[in-house]
Design a protein around this nucleic acid. Sequence first.
DNA 1: GCTGAAAGGCTAATGGCATTAGCCAGATGC
DNA 2: GCATCTGGCTAATGCCATTAGCCTTTCAGC
Lengths: 186, 186
Amino acid sequence: MARAALSPDAVVGLALRIVDEEGPGALTLSAVAGRAGVATPSLYKHVRNLAELRVLVSGRVMGELTEVASEAVLGRSGDEALRALMDGWRSYAYRHPHRYSAMIQAPRPETAETADRLIGIMLAALRAYGLEGSAAIHAVRCLRAAMHGFAVLEAAGAFQLAEDLDESHALLAHMVVSGLRTAREH
Amino acid sequence: MARAALSPDAVVGLALRIVDEEGPGALTLSAVAGRAGVATPSLYKHVRNLAELRVLVSGRVMGELTEVASEAVLGRSGDEALRALMDGWRSYAYRHPHRYSAMIQAPRPETAETADRLIGIMLAALRAYGLEGSAAIHAVRCLRAAMHGFAVLEAAGAFQLAEDLDESHALLAHMVVSGLRTAREH
DNA sequence: GCTGAAAGGCTAATGGCATTAGCCAGATGC
DNA sequence: GCATCTGGCTAATGCCATTAGCCTTTCAGC
């Protein structure tokens, strides 16, 4: 390579810092170039365009979340695994709210692999509940919905009242757990 | 007024059509002006700027959702009310996925009143569970998280597998219901 | 060490969009 | 009838993404 400096990964790194500090809406090529000390068009040597950069950022975030989720579930099972997963997920979103909301939910080929790993971790966390086939899929969907919904709303500051959010989240975990234990009646 | 034609409400209406047809990302003043048959700057006579238009759109969507939620809960109670609320919510998001995702979750003074009504409806739907004070707040938060999470993911097409989504959603409702019934253990 | 190619930076130019300023016509209230 | 206000318009500015084409530095192979 000529010059030291940039690389696709480095560009994504700078992009993540912008997202963290100023929100996903502030992610522009112009801003990244500014931080990189480089003219905007130079970025096109590393990234196809802004849309791709967003996808790359999203992929990185999803990877980090997968890391967190994986660590939470490792060596645990049953309710404990589920609660650890939910706590880890929430904690990640809480620590990096902008980053979390920069994660694209619509399926994309570029992040399909990571997304599958993430789903796999959720499935693993549910293993102890003995759900078979479709039942496990439904359970994962509900788990995702609960975790994602809470994370999004908390990250957006949508929970305004003074009540302790840890307690709210504990209730959410309780809902998931108790719902799975009694997931007979369809 | 001079001329017939536009008004803030009409502008929001056109904006909603754009959102529905092309997604929230396609909502630009330029696009609205195009549909209105008017030059872009003319819109500033009706709306302060794009940011405000987004808030107005969001408010309208929240209002519609409140309508739906209210109708679902009317004349029902207990599990039935809760399930009807969840079904109505999901159904709205399903029928208008782009519109749903144009709804701003971060609290805003302009939509505070509608948001409060919506929270009120959720509280009403939970009335039969006899939750007092803080417990009710936690329950509403969890209900919101579950409904919003499912709606967002479904609207984004994040649920890829073939399994029936109605069934997944029924499980989600079951989780909420069973979690609330047994909401003793914190 | 020399050379040729490629990598990675740059400037210039284009086009879309938001926003502001300032103008103008027609409708309205009196 | 007339003053005024409402709601439209054009012109201008500035930001941003993107493309084209140039130029230098680096490095692989000799």
